[in-house]
């Protein structure tokens, strides 16, 4: 008997119609990433060995005869053209569709410098190695569910990283730092 969809059940979406470009120079890591993406149900996975090859594939995918790439997963450290250089090329591109392409930068380095550099060059997300199915799936979902508006400012084009302050119309139960410190001392 076939399963009947539940009335009122929330839809979760599918990656069947999504094209992902994986840019990574190490074949073993390419296998790992593509295996994960396939299991997640990504419809089309394209692989580039380095940033230069990725540029050609992106250009072609956004040409009249191409099938547009929806998202790029790019390794930070690669010979020929690295992840940051590719990111700069994408964000500085004259083609409007290429400029807004969601970019996830993969790095083995968790240092603040790496996160800051990814942000400064306009990455949508920074993913830390080793990449697990859990971390990859949550980053993909975040890029899909929470796209930030883009900002164009002198010397920067990319997702808006500024904190957003929003008015709330209910009782704020969060505590301020001085309140937390006071509470801590009271508990001692």
């Amino acid at each position: 008997m076939s399963k009947q969809p539940q009335v009122g059940a929330k839809k979760t979406g599918s990656l069947k119609g999504i094209s992902v470009l994986v840019v990574e120079d190490y074949p073993f890591m390419v296998d790992m990433l593509t295996a994960m993406l396939r299991e997640f149900g990504v419809g089309r996975i394209i692989v580039a060995e380095n940033g230069e090859e990725a540029k050609d594939l992106i250009r072609y995918s956004f040409s009249a005869s191409g099938n547009a790439i929806d998202m790029v997963l790019v390794d930070w450290l690669m010979p020929v053209c690295n992840g940051v250089e590719l990111l700069q090329w994408v964000r500085g591109n004259k083609n409007e569709q290429i400029r807004f392409l969601p970019m996830v930068l993969i790095s083995a380095n968790t240092s603040e410098r790496v996160v800051k550099t990814s942000r400064d060059f306009g990455a949508n997300e920074a993913l830390v190695k080793p990449v697990s199915p859990k971390s990859l799936s949550s980053h993909l979902a975040h890029v899909i569910n929470h796209p930030r508006p883009f900002v164009k400012a002198p010397g920067f084009f990319g997702p808006d990283r500024r904190r957003q302050f929003r008015e709330i119309n209910f009782n704020d139960r969060r505590k301020t730092a001085p309140e937390l410190v006071k509470e801590y001392h009271e508990q001692l």
């Binding site: 979406g13 119609g17 999504i18 929806d70 899909i144 569910n145 796209p147 508006p149 164009k152 400012a153």
Partner: peptide, 16 residues
């Protein structure tokens, strides 16, 4: 600064 608010095409492509 110039802000670009775009329709979430990626989410649409997932069927939502």
């Amino acid at each position: 600064v110039e802000m670009f608010h775009r329709v979430n095409r990626l989410k649409m492509k997932t069927g939502l």
